[in-house]
């Protein structure tokens, strides 16, 4: 809208809000509601997981042995670290430390990339032996007819999660550009805050994926 900022001294407050307080509160609630939809979106896959695990407990114990606990654990720590750095980024924005803000964001992006690289090596080593999703599955090391289903679930859950990581990286790159331009101040850092919320959720989901997929011994 053309006159978006016309009536305000505080230029970042959109015309239909009273003040930045109302704007930040609204954006946060909006983001939380979005996270609710994310939880339920992943929830569908968790339902599939639970139903099939309850049907074939053996299958899950046998198949999970193929996944590398070490890599999974490293990735867990990497994501925890990235959650910390983005929380620090929000703090930096609140304290008006602009240089620190973009530095923390960049570290977060790097950690996210580390996560993806590790995931990439995990995937390719699986592909190499014929562990592919669905009807492309050719691996013969697991003596259970349901093995393709386990790995389909594995690929869908981690794939969807990986997609969220990539989206998160995109959002953070945007934040870095904006932060460099000096958009975010102690008075206005809503995008940083809501992106951080999103990123923590990505971490949260991994916290559940890790024991459910990797740690069934």
């Amino acid at each position: 809208m053309a006159n978006q900022n016309a009536t305000h001294g505080e230029s970042h407050v959109a015309h239909h809000f009273v003040d930045s307080e109302q704007q930040l509160d609204s954006s946060k609630l909006g983001m939380w509601l979005f996270l609710v939809t994310e939880v339920l979106f992943f929830g569908g896959l968790f339902v599939a997981y639970i139903v099939y695990r309850a049907w074939n407990p053996e299958l899950f114990y046998m198949s999970a042995k193929e996944l590398s606990t070490t890599l999974g654990a490293i990735n867990t720590v990497v994501l925890i670290g990235s959650s910390l750095t983005i929380a620090l980024a929000v703090r930096a924005a609140q304290l008006n430390q602009r240089a620190l803000l973009s530095r923390y964001l960049i570290v977060t992006i790097l950690l996210a990339c580390v996560f993806l690289v590790i995931k990439y090596f995990e995937y390719t080593s699986k592909f190499a032996v014929g562990i592919l999703p669905g009807e492309f599955y050719t691996y013969e090391g697991i003596d259970h007819p349901g093995a393709p289903i386990f790995f389909s679930i594995y690929y869908m859950m981690t794939g969807l999660h990986g997609l969220h990581v990539i989206i998160g990286i995109g959002l953070m790159v945007y934040l870095v550009v904006k932060a460099r331009a000096g958009t975010y101040t102690a008075a206005y850092y809503t995008p940083v805050e809501v992106t951080a919320l999103y990123w923590h959720l990505v971490d949260l989901i991994w916290i559940f994926l890790f024991p459910l997929l990797y740690l069934i011994e």
């Binding site: 939809t37 979106f41 869908m156």
Partner: peptide, 21 residues
């Protein structure tokens, strides 16, 4: 609605990759 999304995603993956759920 998120559940509808995941349902149809599974349906689409079912017909393209044969995930078999």
């Amino acid at each position: 609605t998120p559940n509808l999304a995941i349902t149809f995603l599974l349906l689409i993956l079912e017909s393209t990759l044969g995930v078999g759920i």
